[in-house]
Design a protein around this nucleic acid. Sequence first.
RNA 1: GCGCAGGUGGCAGAGUGGUCAAUUGCAUCGCGCUGUAGACGCGACGCCCUUUGGGCUCCGGGGGUUCGAAUCCCUCCCUGCGCA
Length: 383
Amino acid sequence: MQFSITHKSEKSLARVGVLETPHGKIETPCFVAVGTKATVKALGPDDLERVGTQIVLANTYHLYTSKTHEVIKQAGGLNNFMRWQGITMTDSGGFQVFSLGFGKDHEIGRYSTLFPGEDLQKMVKAESIKESQYIKILDEGVVFRLPDGKRTVLTPEKSIEIQEAIGADIMFSFDECTSPLASKEYVKEAMGRTHRWAERCIKAKTRNDQALWGIVQGGEWNDLREESVRTISNLPFDGFGLGGAMGKTKERMFELIEFINTRLPDNKPRHLLGIGYPEDIPEIVKLGVDTFDCVAPTREARNGTLYVKGGRISIQKSEYRQDFLPIEEGCGCYTCQNFNRAYLRHLYKEKELLFYRLASIHNLYFINNLVAGIRERIKNGEI
RNA sequence: GCGCAGGUGGCAGAGUGGUCAAUUGCAUCGCGCUGUAGACGCGACGCCCUUUGGGCUCCGGGGGUUCGAAUCCCUCCCUGCGCA
């Protein structure tokens, strides 16, 4: 993997770069479509291409619990398996340490309910939970107790082994993603673990055609983030991920991203893990983020929320019942070129499968188009 | 015309003397989804009032029994099935 910066903004931390991997090169900043189980839900590779997607992120945990990583290895790697020609990444399973652990105990998403204002009851409840009832986090690794009763164990070594079997262009080191409700004391402890795991991931890596990016943790505390950046950037990673909880307001999240990015080495790519509402994208790019993934465009699409300039529409609303305009006039996506809101609303209400595809096509196109525009504006010195 | 079964909120369908403004599903409406346990979740859904609260109206129509009826009785209307 190679990364080179081709344009650097004088107005912000934004930059345009070229990321080159065995499966092609792309220009950054770039949105990464989430394809957890080796598919971007509802879409085929041809759809992804038409929508302008360049990178897809699959997930170690999900492909491991179904033992699909073995099949993928036999198939000659993720690209062959899912018939995708572009770049691929795999998340390490570190996020599931949160989403299937304290995320459930705390009854909270990584951000969701925090932005509108802190929920005191949840915070009080979270403080009383010292150990997750769903997973066991040890220095050695993590034991997941699945909803179906199966046990899954993930260690840094195991995560790398699985990620090498999957064979994506870019792997992430196994980390512990912490809850936004975790105490500083706990986050510090978890961060130390993530650092030790990072070293073990590097040692465990055997293939040299795959890149490995390290993940910065430390929650919402500057001193912890600083320490994490120092530790992770001193290890021989090919790039970095910004992970974990990023404070309880958006302003704080932006501050933290800036804090971290101004301290990471300039010449390596930075991936903001899991963030990507359309309204936030211009900001995170200005703060020096090169790649970022987010389930929102595809999940919201499936749930009937479609992106338009300046916001989003809920296609279920009765006002669209006889609305024969496209989702957004002037949109160049396949969906808007061919179908109108009335039809999409009909498909949604009837839970017709075509809806999920058409909606996902639109939202991904919207995001990719947005990011492409931002790249041009960085090149033109506007950002 | 006779026999049997039944008429409950937009629909389907529970309840069968008080804890019923009435289970549940669908529909409707609103809200939410940020490294995907998510083609999903939460809420509202008779009317009115600012509430975890209060008031009014309510289970085909009318009348009755009872302290109290969606629930029991009488009567009328309507629907389905069977027989003429």
